[in-house]
Nucleic acid binder design. Structure first.
Lengths: 240, 240
DNA sequence: GTTGACATCTTGTATATACAAGTTTATGAT
DNA sequence: ATCATAAACTTGTATATACAAGATGTCAAC
């Protein structure tokens, strides 16, 4: 099922996380890794490219692969991660309260959609607390075309876990925008936003492997509790 | 100098941008691309992987590579991009005014550094306007170890262009955090921030290819003009 | 019409090989 | 000791080959 280079990636990643390969040290050379895992060099290199993209290592021609300081990512809101995954990687006491779960149409405005399209969806509104403080309101529109029924349990636990492990959906990529906006009165109350204070809104559209759109998300954060951590590699795209 | 797969990547990317390969259509198959460019399949595949990471295409096993709607990225603040690059890709009238350019030590606090380390740097403070409105204050600490002299022209034009094209620096990756904070009085005046309104702060540390840190950046945005667009691929990292 | 087997597309994984091009170390001549 | 060269490492690029596995269409059998 899982490919060799994926297993190698995970093995090396774990060794980095646990300090077996400490930061700013060199990994074994590619040829040594070949011997270690009993594979060809190209296979090892595929694993290393994945670690490179994740910001775990830096490859330097002629020298080797340096382990980067990955402890900076202890608070990774980057990438597509679910609240539960986020929560497990930290050590925090958090809860999820499902406020609403009902069928609704996706609002044509707000996500930049065609006006004529009427998309049936399951609307889910959840309040996330960390250490008993309300921090995030998560609003999901899950398109009924893809998922017609969502048990409340799944919403309380983890939607992604339900979609991927239970339904076998292949969630692949998402586009997201981050903006700062005035909260609605409801949001102000739920998140206990002081007067004059804004909220951070992360809107995303999530797609399956076959490029079918299946979910809209609005994540409303208390601005004072908001932090977005990102790792970016420089890549030039000349043109035009 | 430039590799085949990089040229193929750029060629296909340009064709996607110009609509020769329109959104939601399939690219030619990998074998057809081999014939087209006269290369092996692995070389073509390397180019496609790069386009995949950029969010230009989606590969589907057994079917082909679908072109994604890339027009959503017309406002890409994602990745490492300089203000000038950003400006050129849009069509806006913008200016850059250099407020300060002088040697300074990097403040030990604020970037989470060791207290004992005293890093000499060039301090640059710039005010960015778009359509005559002040939008962004950019603060740079460029480490003197790497770059000892920065002409004012370079700061007015593009620091990255100067670093990469003039000095031949190999800028490779950066870590960045986005938070919402109260502006200083100076920031409030420069950006004309109304009372009670916050600003968005993007702090980043930029590294060269050989993992040497060379730049700290603080980018202060007017919250009402701030927008961050991102493309993210889902990748699970199991294991603890 | 429906079904199932098959062939033929597609992309995904894995290997072996070769050479180019940085980096470091060892060697040797001066 | 100094310097230049060469050898021995490292990663980067490119190719050829093989098979696995998903998607699709054809064709025959029922």
């Amino acid at each position: 099922m899982e490919s060799k280079y994926d297993l190698i990636k995970q093995d090396i990643a774990n060794k980095i996380i646990h300090g077996i390969y400490p930061a700013s040290s060199y990994l074994p050379s590619e040829n040594e890794l070949c011997d270690l895992y009993g594979t060809s060099r190209e296979t090892v290199r595929k694993a290393l490219v994945l670690l490179l993209e994740l910001g775990y290592i830096q490859k330097i021609k002629g020298k080797g692969s340096i382990v980067l300081d990955v402890s900076r990512f202890v608070f990774p809101v980057s990438g597509i991660k679910s609240f539960k995954e986020l929560n497990q990687s930290q050590n925090m006491h958090s809860t999820t309260k499902v406020l609403t779960l009902e069928p609704r149409l996706v609002p044509t405005k707000g996500f930049g959609l065609d006006q004529n399209s009427e998309l049936e969806a399951t609307y889910i509104e959840r309040l996330r607390t960390i250490n008993d403080e309300p921090i995030i309101i998560d609003i999901d529109y899950v398109l009924s075309k893809v998922v017609n029924d969502i048990p409340k349990m799944a919403a309380e636990n983890s939607l992604y876990e339900y979609f991927e492990d239970q339904l076998g959906l292949d969630i692949s990529y998402a586009t997201k925008t981050i903006t700062v906006e005035e909260p609605t009165e409801r949001q102000r109350q739920l998140l206990k936003i002081p007067p004059h204070k804004d909220v951070v809104v992360i809107r995303s559209m999530t797609y399956l492997n076959d490029t079918t759109l299946f979910q809209f998300t609005e994540s409303i954060h208390r601005a004072d509790k908001f932090s977005f951590v990102d790792f970016a590699r420089r890549q030039k795209l000349k043109g035009h």
